[in-house]
């Protein structure tokens, strides 16, 4: 049997070599389809420990991320914001293609942690409370930016970035860019393009661009002719001094809708 065993191991090595081209092909196909993008580096090893790292390497990335997420939820219930941020960092590193983790991590930081920082009665200095709030909001933005970098082929995080910039950071120009980017995806919801126009209108120096964008949406038909869009177009026509003949509702091809 010993001779057979030696021959078997020889065949095993030869077949291992013969299968390498197929393995490389799978690696290329996987990388093109955004599979296996997790980077197993020393930082991750330090954060999740040896057992966790071994589990992650052995194909249990997603269950490990789920368990850590539950831990983060418990930290949230105890309002341990710093611990939550650390866990979010690990979870998003383990599952960089999961939009939910990026989105929720950003929301917890930019909304919950930032509001809690402002309401922190233990901190008497308002300046420091404001500083803490800004830091958490920035952390929320940072999660979304990294999420977008890991998922450039999906619209959802661009949309969340738009909402964060609009509602928390009040940066209307950046919000317009994010909504505009989201609207370029064929599966994006129709409101993404409208939101881009609304935010652009609030961005100094981009009023004309906003008008043209909203006008294009208006001309797409009934589905985009919502009251907010029509009202804003009317305001901008006045502000930009658009000739009467070119205004909405003046041309037979672009009748104003009766929809409320």
């Amino acid at each position: 049997m010993k001779r057979r065993l030696v021959v078997a191991f020889g065949v095993l090595v030869v077949s291992g070599a013969a299968l390498i081209p197929l393995q490389l092909l799978i690696g290329r196909s996987a990388s093109e389809a955004h599979f296996r993008t997790t980077s197993f580096d020393i930082g991750l090893r330090e954060r999740i420990g040896q057992t966790g790292f071994l589990a992650a390497l052995s194909g249990f990335r997603s269950p490990l991320a789920a368990i850590l997420w539950i831990e983060a939820h418990t930290a949230w219930e105890n309002t341990e914001w710093g611990r939550m941020a650390g866990i979010f960092e690990t979870v998003t590193t383990l599952q960089p293609r999961s939009l939910m983790y990026w989105d929720m991590a950003s929301w917890h930081m930019a909304w919950n942690a930032a509001i809690a920082a402002m309401q922190n009665e233990e901190q008497r200095s308002e300046v420091l409370r404001l500083k803490a709030r800004r830091e958490y909001e920035e952390m929320g933005r940072y999660f979304l930016e990294r999420g977008i970098a890991n998922n450039p082929d999906r619209y959802q995080l661009y949309l969340q970035m738009g909402m964060l910039q609009r509602d928390r950071l009040e940066n209307h120009c950046a919000a317009a860019d994010a909504f505009l980017k989201a609207s370029e995806f064929p599966d994006a919801p129709p409101y993404a393009a409208r939101f881009a126009g609304y935010e652009m209108a609030k961005c100094p120096g981009r009023e004309r661009e906003a008008y043209l964008h909203l006008r294009r949406l208006y001309e797409r038909g009934e589905s985009q002719r919502l009251p907010s869009l029509i009202n804003l177009l009317g305001e901008m026509e006045n502000k930009l001094d658009i000739p009467r003949a070119e205004r909405i509702g003046s041309s037979p091809s672009t009748p104003e809708t009766g929809q409320n």
Binding site: H34, G59, Q95, R97
Partner: peptide, 16 residues
Amino acid sequence: QAFNLTDDIIAGTAVP
């Protein structure tokens, strides 16, 4: 490792 597709499938990545 080539057989670990589920981690990314759960995250919403489409399998070609």
